[in-house]
Design a protein around this nucleic acid. Structure first.
Length: 919
RNA sequence: GCCCGGAUGGCGGAAUUGGUAGACGCGCUGGACUCAAAAUCCAGUAUCCCUUAAAGAUGUGCGGGUUCGAUUCCCGCUCUGGGCACCA
């Protein structure tokens, strides 16, 4: 019998599906283990060889844990709402549901070929109404909760109302927006609308005005993590800053908990660091400056981490989007300020960042320095961000490079505050030195002066200590069709939640998927988009909504009474191992932690962190091939000759290239305009250039895993992807070496079969054979726990070399089990051939016996002053003094010592002997 | 600019965390089997010196340091990948 992988793989994939081999139920008798992959967005391009890398790694771990006796939850599904399907719908009129369904089918087909041990009975899509019912439910919970800072948790809004009725707004310490303080009496007298407006300032899911990233091309707002370098992450369209009223999630209330929680997680340091930076905690102080504008007095609060530098404030700056900007513009400066605001508005986010031009305008008002009493001008400039701190700053040009640039440009004074600081060319930003020109702070070091200044400011009622975070509330509305509708209607202009029984609120059918002519989101096209006579919200939720609590749903996916039952949640608890890419560091992985913490506060989740351990698989890049077209012609020139011409680079499909040589005929047939392409060859061949790039349909460098499965089999693909190198590392796809892994599997097969002869015997294994086996058991155990799969594959190859010609059942049977996580199909086949009725999944991981592995003798390299001279063969298990004694008495040693006196002998058990001679 | 990583043969990558650097695989060279090819198996494969071998020397991006001993630890660079970027 030959190793016919196509037959074997098909056979067992069908068997697993028919027998539901990987179906799992909560079982309190067994320890649980939850292995989760970041579920994919089913794009039209299908899976490429990069996708399965993480899935294979997690599948190996899941299979390994099963062999170790764990009850393993290993589900899969699809993150199905998203922009590409909708963009496609706008262009073609095809319902995104249809596109998504087709893509999912394709993904499933491709996934099934690789032999994953997913429990498909738990599959769902985020676009299933049965699922998004619970996304909407969670939103309603957030809508009806507020964040109590004293208790540091979310609480029902009724409790807030009760507190207001009892003690007014000052009786609570909540994370909230701006509003005038009020007493209990005032509260009771407020109109319903006024009450609703105030409560909206407290809700965890709230509607509020803020500066948002507006992408006109996509017709929607975007979250900060969806914008890269001023362009939308999806599609790469320019983004503008705009003030809009949007649904938002009060993620910022959880900033401190999100930061602290990181300490307890088993994630890579780099990923934790990314999240820390994104949360961006900074300690400082808020200070109030009195500002006079056209004779009227105002108070402006600023945030600073350098309270010690107040004496050096020579001007103030407001953000163009700040609410103070209008109030503090004097009549004389009005025209100029308005012209400036208009010019800022027109700039894309990209231009604002990239240009870094120093721009600004004088507001016409003057502020008073609260410590020195001096009058300083108030300016308006885009370098001050509306969203961070208070949207206004005190400028200390001597010790802040941005303020310095601004002061130089507009000729404002610079007062140095640190002894010996030279500020003639640039600012002195370092937090070190001795203060001067600073009144009562003179003579202190910066480190002493910062708290001293804050203490002073607090004592005099000018300001207070304050911790600021970069993390903003998440913009939660999208002006799009293909997302979860908000279960909110507007009764008398008041946002009103739909009752839970009305969920899911399903997407309406509409004729076109683009915005209405008057700029309303697509849902406004629906014929009857209302509830109980009240109009429904027309925007939809963003992509991250559905992926924020999906891991909880997998615990209990068919429950129609709850997101997850208490029993299921208490058994499966949280994800023990989560595998996915780092690109979600500041998006999904923050939102999901926030979402989970919220559900934890309300008692719906029993763990406050969703993902205990996280492994980031590196991207598999594609190798893109290039041809060079001579500019203005249809002639292409081979890579070696391209410098002689003026050329432009043209990407060519990898399928037409072998060994960097282009199949020119295939290229001509590829697209009509190539039909009469000419080629300038070198040595009779057309050589392509290449570059390592992201694997993408548009780069023609996508390698489909199906092709690898056809040619080598899924087991080879799995082993090969793991053998490629550490999973965290990014690496270009290449099939160099895939033959080696394939050869390994064939070799393994031949230990059982010599053509049609079954070789397996019941003979007793030798000591050497047991040693080879147990070395592998020990290595595999250790490597899998450390996610070092490439070395495990190596260990397999070594073991096979050592076990050459051994066909003893006592050795082969455990080998099959050991191989099963990596190459499940061949393992399953051989396991059955060995006479087992049930799947190898139900086998146990072989027990590691160290005694088989220990050597009888140990080879010690003996070196003198660092130079290795000879190898000393000594019995194993000797103690350090015994080895030392042996060295000193050894005749060979004496030969090299040549009478010199031994200073010391260094013995590391099992390692080395180093003899230091007296000079 | 700031914050993390990384750099080892022709290539992908190992190295029990301070102890024989280059495991394993690819590629390459030679050999066996074969009419031949494929497949399979065996041997060799860091560099230099050398006809070859032995022996030796050099060698983990560069320059220093600690140590009997450094790919591993420390200091200073270079290159490179990634993240953040007017965050006051």
């Amino acid at each position: 019998m030959d190793y016919n992988f196509l037959e074997i793989e098909k056979k067992w994939q069908e068997y697993w599906a028919a027998n539901k081999t990987y179906k799992v139920e909560a079982d309190s008798a067994k320890p649980k283990y939850y292995v989760l992959d970041m579920f994919p967005y089913p794009s039209g391009a299908g899976l490429h060889v990069g996708h399965p890398l993480g899935y294979i790694a997690s599948d190996i771990f899941a299979r390994y844990k099963r062999l170790k006796g764990f009850n393993v939850l290993h589900p899969m599904g699809y993150d199905a709402f998203g922009l590409p399907a909708e963009q496609y719908a706008i262009q073609t009129g095809q319902h995104p549901e249809k596109t998504t369904k087709d893509n999912v089918a394709r993904y499933r087909q491709q996934l099934d070929r690789i032999g994953f041990s997913f429990d498909w009975d738990r599959e769902f899509r985020t676009s299933d109404p049965d699922y998004y019912k619970w996304t909407q439910w969670a939103f309603l919970k957030m809508f009806s909760c507020w964040y109590d800072k004293s208790m540091d948790k979310a609480r029902p809004i009724e409790e807030l109302v009760a507190a207001f009725e009892k003690g007014g707004s000052s009786s609570v310490n909540a994370a909230c927006g701006e509003h005038e303080p009020f007493s209990a009496e005032q509260w009771k007298g407020f109109s319903d609308k006024h009450k609703a407006d105030i409560l909206m300032q407290y809700r965890i899911a709230y509607q509020g005005e803020s500066t948002v990233n507006w992408c006109p091309h996509l017709g929607t707002v975007l979250a900060n993590d969806e914008v890269k370098d001023g362009f939308s992450e999806r599609g790469g369209y320019p983004v503008f800053q705009k003030k809009m009223t949007q649904w938002q999630l009060r993620v910022s209330a959880y900033a401190e908990r999100l930061l602290k929680g990181l300490d307890s997680l088993d994630w890579t340091d780099s990923l934790k660091e990314m999240q820390r930076n994104w949360i961006g905690r900074s300690e400082g102080a808020e200070m109030v400056f009195e500002v006079e504008c056209d004779g009227k007095k105002h108070e402006v609060t600023i945030f600073t981490t350098r309270a010690d530098t107040v004496f050096g404030v020579t001007f103030m700056v407001l953000s163009p989007e700040s609410e103070w900007t209008a109030k503090l513009t004097s009549a004389s400066q009005k025209a100029e300020v308005e012209a400036y605001l208009e010019s800022v508005k027109k700039k894309t986010e990209r231009e604002r960042i990239a240009g870094k031009a120093v721009t600004g305008v004088f507001s016409g008002s003057w502020a008073r320095n609260p410590l020195s009493g001096e009058k300083v001008p108030v300016w308006i400039s885009e370098y001050v961000l509306a969203g961070y701190g208070t949207g206004a700053i005190m400028a200390v040009p001597a010790h802040d490079s941005r303020d310095y640039a601004f002061a130089r440009k507009f000729d404002l004074p610079v007062i140095p505050l640190i002894e010996g600081a030279d500020v003639s060319k640039e600012s002195f930003d370092a937090k070190e030195g001795i203060m001067c020109n600073s009144g009562f702070l003179n003579g202190m070091s910066v480190k002493e002066a910062i708290p001293a200044a804050i203490d002073y400011v607090e004592a005099h009622g000018i300001g207070r200590r304050k911790v600021n975070y970069r993390l903003r509330d998440a913009i939660f509305s999208r002006q799009r069709y293909w997302g979860e509708p908000f279960p909110i209607c507007f009764k008398g202009g008041i946002a009103t939640p739909l009752p839970i029984e009305a969920l899911p609120l399903t997407l309406p059918e509409i004729d076109q998927y683009k915005p209405t002519d008057d700029g309303q989101p697509p849902l406004a096209r629906a014929k009857k988009w209302e509830f109980d006579g009240a109009p429904l919200e027309t925007s939809t939720m963003p992509g991250f909504a559905g992926s924020s609590a999906y891991y909880l749903r997998y615990m209990d996916p068919h429950n129609d009474k709850a997101l997850v039952s208490k029993e299921a949640n208490e058994y499966w608890r949280s994800v023990d191992l989560y595998v996915g890419g780092t690109e979600h560091a500041t998006g999904h992985l923050i939102y999901s932690r926030f979402w989970n913490k919220f559900l934890y506060d309300l008692g719906y989740a029993c763990e406050d962190e969703p993902f205990r351990k996280l492994i980031n698989q590196g991207m598999i890049q594609g190798r893109t091939s290039y041809a060079y077209r001579i500019t203005g012609t249809n002639t292409y020139v081979s890579a070696g000759l391209k410098d002689k011409y003026e050329t432009s680079d043209v990407r060519v499909p990898v399928s037409m290239v072998r060994n960097d040589r282009l199949d020119t005929e295939a290229f001509r047939k590829w697209i009509p305009e190539n039909a009469n392409a000419e080629f300038i060859l070198e040595d009779g061949e057309f050589v392509c250039g290449w570059a390592i790039e992201k694997m993408s349909k548009t780069f023609f460098n996508v390698v489909n895993p199906d092709d690898v499965c056809d040619n080598y089999g899924a087991d080879t693909l799995r082993l090969y992807e793991m053998f490629l190198g550490p999973i965290e590392q990014a690496k270009p796809w290449s099939t160099d070496g895939i033959d080696g892994v394939n050869r390994f599997l064939k070799k393994f097969w031949r230990m059982f079969w010599d053509r049609d002869k079954w070789l397996v015997t019941d003979e007793e294994p030798t000591k050497a054979e047991l040693k080879a086996l147990h070395k592998l058991i020990g290595k595999e155990q250790e490597d899998i726990e450390n996610f070092s799969y490439n070395t495990t594959v190596s260990a397999f190859m070594i073991a096979l070399n050592e076990l050459q010609g051994c066909s003893k059942k006592a050795i082969l049977e455990p080998l099959v089990v050991l191989l099963s996580p990596f190459a499940p199909h061949i393992a399953e086949e051989l396991w059955h051939q060995l006479g087992h009725e049930s799947s190898v999944v139900y086998a146990s991981f072989p027990e590691y016996k160290k005694e088989y592995v220990v050597d009888d003798s140990v080879k010690y390299p003996v070196s003198f002053n660092g130079k290795t001279r000879f190898i000393l063969d000594v019995p194993a298990g000797l103690s350090v003094p015994e080895v030392e004694k042996l060295v000193r008495s050894d005749a060979q040693t004496e030969k090299y010592l040549t009478g010199a006196e031994i200073l010391k002998v260094i013995v590391v058990p099992g390692r080395i002997v180093n003899i230091v001679l007296k000079k």
